[in-house]
Write a protein that binds this DNA or RNA. Structure first.
Length: 992
RNA sequence: GCUCCCGUGGCGGAAUUGGUAGACGCAGCUGACUUAAAAUCAGCCGCCUUUGGCUUGUGGGUUCGAGUCCCACCGGGAGUACCA
């Protein structure tokens, strides 16, 4: 290849710009040339241990350490990328290139999450089939990413919509459907509880080892049940099951949604439409079975604390007790089970509350008991009448209403009384909407002396308040500070007023007085269990994962229903189940407030597809396909494994490849946990994708398909790139590119103008409507991909958000130009480096830079790496001749960040092979460190003198020098104290 | 309300276990080169009342020494919300 091809700039001949200056145009030529070379030579092809990826071009895996660096794969939206999107991709690319140079076998690839709402909505907008628009969007995104020089193994790319991929998504669903959670089973790793094949459950039913729920007293054996009865029993155990409880119905989107997709305000995360609770038959996944393990295993992975905390909070494990209260009802009494985290406060319970949906409310008396205070009746003539009205009012409240009114308690007496099992006290039973049906048991014991909500309620209805915990004696706090004003809610306290001595309780005596709260909880739990009225339990906030959507653009379920409505799993040989053509693939949406509307799946519009004749082992019969589709999270739950073995038609992933790339011993950095070595993506997936993915992985682990319990060992959240946007004086956004900066005003604030009018700056996201979008394509045209990469990597720490500032990009460009000039004569294009030995100072700087940059790269700090490389380059610029022995390591160290220009310079320096697999420079220990250091002499912490000393100076020698240097300040007096930290600091405390 | 994170020059940001605050870049200023400009190169560049003093959101504390540790407050961001 000739230097002239990309070096000569035709415009340079007219102006005075040197012919071989590194500028945008030259960068473009260099970059496209190297991208082509990498593609042709398969430079970034990672070698597999077996299978058809072990072909000639990739280097063979042979014992090299594997390193798997992965990005959260993107939705190919129609808008294309802006400069904020690829920050994480650039980070993983820099890391991948660095590890490749460390001699590791690096797996780095990119796929596309192409099902789901964004792709479908874009298709609906443009009136084209989703497959057409999705594939066009993928092509455009692939082009933008390719132009960035990302070092992907392009043989391993795929999209979730590919039939060869979707087949395995459906296959995994089938495995989950055919599994149940055996909480008594001891796993090979020693833990208790495991997913197992549904046949093991059937065996337990058959053998009588486990009673068949619902048929305990029927005397029927498993084989005497009808097919429909069996299916119904199994449904309650399967990990993928048809839910019978209320689900989130979003009429505005025309689909049901998972809890994770509903905001705190009760709106859909996408579109912000109201969401209603409706009883609809929908697919659900039993993620609650894994609640504890999903929390527990956070300890063995290297994730940001923030994300771990968000997952812990979302799962919301709380330890408490369930306690049975007897309730006197007209029909002879009912049992009420309550859940509490503070069983130690049972003696402070003065009333009880059930949620308005609670079953107990069907057993209320016909009339109010005598002496019922008027305020408890809510103005209603009978309990039943009041409860009906109260329930209706509670149901009509949106989640937002509940949030707004939090603190303002409402409620109604039920006419019933519950008996406290410890004290024997008769407690009035209320219903109130501050008790939620879907948490705990939907019923609580109210302790106004120890809980703010119960206290508020007690004040409103004039109920008794008893304190059963007082502040610790040495806390400086006193119960008198609370009485009549507030509950004492802290766990740090001493139990009081809690003994059966003066009560009518049955069973053994119990005295909690004087105990610390946690000890009292243990003691009371033992008592409850012994008395048979309760026990310690664990409760979760996490709900099962609603898994079906009424959408066209998703994976169909591998399920058909017989004429009798019994579901049947289709055999693996029938996979994939492809999407049919339908007359109209757009979702059926409704008035966003129409809670009574019913979902209508687009797939149901193709009757020929829905109704099929199949032979499922007992002769041809008519079946009806499930017309729901899976949520887009399905495809992204397991894609990381497919990169390992993308073309396998026999397995989801080959077990030897899994072992090599992700197994428990694949890489020292991931310890024994295994998993993806580095996973980079936005924090917005903390409780969505990352929770679902862990859940699926654990099922596959339990069932033996993978041998590591966690999918992602190290997680890193990149920050967001923010941007300035500008408005005119009417508040309309104006194009940011056309705004000019003005002088600072009187208060020091900068001013801005747009075509002469005043403009106002605001700060936030990059977006089309804000008219401040800058695309990678803009950057390629103005500076080239290397400068773009350099700028994004130098902006600051990768995990922090920061503003894009167009003006600063030029700094990176200048650095690359200076590096170029250090190697190439701008006018002639000749290589100018010298083969002379570097001088002592250059050697020092070079080796210190290598040591420092290596350290920075290990910790994913490209910003400080770049700063140090600039220092080295600036030093070389000042030399008469640039030594090859100094500039070559510099080029190698810069190459992960600005790979194209470095490849070009490397080849100009006479190297025939790409530098992608060149060994990372190693610092020569003889030249690391400094000749002399500046020691600082401080008096009372203030710098009073500086001394140039040897790094190995003896502390006593340094002390003498320091005392001499500041002798005049000490006035001849002996200092009170001298602290010597050789060779950097001498700190002197003078005499008074 | 609760929990977590973050506050450093005009701007983006540096600063091992507490040890010279402001690396590197942008912007700005001076000079060289140039008819001139750009580019490039060499310098300067926290603030003030400049032999010195002050300075990492504010006020305290611990320490010989605090951007870093502790307490309180102010400001910004994120998560979460009647979860018993």
């Amino acid at each position: 290849m000739s230097d002239n091809e990309q070096g000569a700039d035709s415009s340079a001949n007219i102006s005075s710009v040197p012919a071989y200056r590194y500028n945008a145009k030259m960068a473009q030529g260099i970059e496209e040339k190297w991208q082509k070379t990498w593609d042709e030579k398969g430079t970034f092809w990672a070698a597999n241990v077996k299978g058809d990826l072990t072909d000639g071009k990739g280097r063979h895996a042979d014992g090299r350490t594997p390193y798997f660096a992965m990005d959260m794969f993107p939705y190919p939206s129609g808008k294309g990328l802006h400069v904020g999107h690829p920050l994480g991709y650039l980070a993983t690319d820099v890391v991948s290139r660095y590890h490749r140079m460390k001699g590791e076998n690096v797996l780095h690839a990119m796929g596309y999450d192409a099902f789901g709402l964004p792709a479908e909505q874009y298709a609906v907008q443009t009136g084209q089939h989703p497959r057409v628009t999705t594939e066009a969007n993928i092509a455009n995104m692939r082009r933008q990413l390719h132009r960035m020089g990302l070092s992907f193994d392009n043989r391993r790319t795929f999209a979730t919509i590919d039939p060869g991929y979707m087949r395995w998504t459906q296959w995994i669903f089938s495995r989950i459907y055919d599994a149940w959670y055996d909480s008594d089973f001891v796993r090979p790793d020693g833990g208790k509880g495991s997913a197992r094949h549904i046949d093991t459950l059937i065996d337990q039913f058959r053998s009588g080892k486990r009673a068949i729920p619902g048929f305990e007293d029927s005397g029927k054996s498993w084989d005497q049940l009808t097919e429909a009865e069996q299916a119904d029993v199994l449904n309650d155990f399967r990990l993928a099951y048809i839910s019978k409880s209320p689900v989130n119905w979003c009429p505005g989107l025309g689909t049901v949604l998972a809890n994770e997709e509903v905001t705190a305000e009760g709106k859909s995360e996408r579109g912000n439409f109201p969401v209603f609770q409706r009883e609809l038959r929908q697919w659900s996944m039993r993620i609650t079975a894994y609640g504890h393990r999903l929390i527990e295993d956070l300890d063995i992975i290297d994730w940001p604390q923030k994300v771990k905390l968000m997952q812990r909070n979302w799962i919301g494990e709380s330890h408490g007790a369930s306690v049975h209260f007897k309730v006197e009802t007209p029909d002879g009494g009912q049992d009420m089970e309550i859940y509490t985290t503070r069983p130690d406060t049972l003696f402070g319970t003065t009333f009880a509350v059930v949620s308005p949906e609670h079953d107990l409310l069907q057993h209320v008396p016909a009339a109010w008991p005598e002496n019922t205070p008027e305020s408890w009746k809510g103005g209603y003539a009978t309990p039943a009448e009041g409860i009906k009205a109260y329930r209706l009012a509670a149901e009509s409240k949106t989640a937002q209403d509940r949030v707004d009114e939090a603190g303002e308690k409402t409620g109604l007496f039920t006419g019933l009384y519950a008996t406290n099992p410890i004290t024997g006290d008769k407690l009035p039973l209320f219903t109130a909407d501050y008790v939620l049906m879907d948490y705990g048991t939907g019923a609580i014991m109210a302790v106004p002396g120890g809980d703010q909500r119960d206290y508020d309620f007690a004040k409103k209805f004039d109920l008794l308040v008893i304190y059963t915990v007082k502040p610790l004696p040495d806390s400086g706090d006193d119960l008198a500070n609370y009485e009549g004003k507030a509950p004492f809610v802290s766990h740090d306290g001493i139990v009081i007023n809690s003994s059966t001595e003066h009560t009518q309780a049955k069973g053994d005596a119990l005295n909690l007085n004087g105990l610390r709260v946690n000890d009292a909880i243990d003691k009371v739990n033992q008592w409850l269990e012994a008395a048979g009225v309760g026990k310690g339990t664990v409760s979760y906030r996490l709900r099962d994962w609603l898994f079906s959507r009424q959408r066209y653009w998703g994976e169909p379920f591998p399920i058909v229903y017989g004429e009798d409505g019994v579901p049947h799993l289709l055999p693996d040989s029938m996979l994939p189940i492809n999407l049919p053509d339908v007359p109209d693939y757009s979702p059926k949406t409704f008035d966003p407030m129409d809670a009574e509307s019913n979902p209508e799946a687009p797939l149901s519009r193709n009757e020929d597809w829905v109704k099929v004749t199949l032979d499922l082992g007992d002769g041809p019969k008519t079946y009806y396909r499930d017309t729901n589709t899976m949520p887009n999270w399905a495809g992204s739950c397991w894609y990381y494994m497919r990169y390992l073995d993308p073309n396998d038609t026999e397995h989801m992933v080959d077990s030897d490849e899994y072992e090599y790339w992700m197994g428990p011993n694949h890489n020292k950095e991931s310890g024994k946990t295994g998993g993806v070595d580095l996973y980079v993506g936005g924090v917005e997936h903390a409780v969505l994708h990352l929770l679902y993915s862990r859940f699926w992985h654990k099922i596959l682990f339990d069932l033996g398909y993978v041998d590591t319990p966690e999918p992602f060992y190290k997680l890193f959240n990149q920050g967001m790139i923010q941007a300035y946007a500008y408005t005119d004086d009417r508040g309309q956004y104006v194009p940011a590119a056309e705004v000019e900066g003005g002088p600072a005003d009187k208060s020091g604030e900068p001013t801005f103008t747009w075509h002469g009018q005043p403009a106002f700056r605001e700060f936030g996201k990059m977006g089309k409507s804000l008219k401040n979008i800058i695309t990678p394509d803009d950057m390629y045209a103005r500076y080239g991909a290397d400068t773009f990469r350099l700028y994004e990597m130098s902006m600051g720490p990768l995990d922090e958000s920061r503003p894009w500032n167009d003006r600063n990009v030029v700094g990176g460009m200048r650095f690359l130009q200076r590096l170029w000039r250090n190697v190439v004569d701008e006018n002639t294009g000749e290589v100018t480096v010298s083969d002379v030995e570097p001088d002592a100072k250059t050697l020092k700087l070079l080796n210190n830079t290598i040591a420092a940059v290596t350290e920075e790269m290990e910790h994913m700090r490209p910003n400080t790496s770049i700063a140090k490389l600039i220092v080295l380059n600036n030093h070389l610029t000042g030399l008469k001749a640039v030594p090859r022995a100094a500039v070559e390591p510099l080029i190698l160290m810069l190459s992960p960040i600005a790979p194209h220009i470095c490849e070009e310079l490397w080849s100009k320096l006479g190297h025939a092979e790409s530098l992608a697999h060149e060994p990372w420079p190693k610092a020569d220990e003889r030249y690391v460190g400094e000749e002399s250091v500046t020691a600082v002499v401080q008096i009372k912490g203030k710098v009073r003198a500086k001394l140039e000393v040897s790094p190995s100076i003896e502390p006593n020698e340094l002390k003498d020098m320091a005392l001499k240097a500041v002798a005049d300040r000490l006035g001849g007096k002996e200092p009170r104290k001298v602290i010597v930290k050789a060779p950097k600091i001498v700190s002197i405390v003078p005499a008074e």
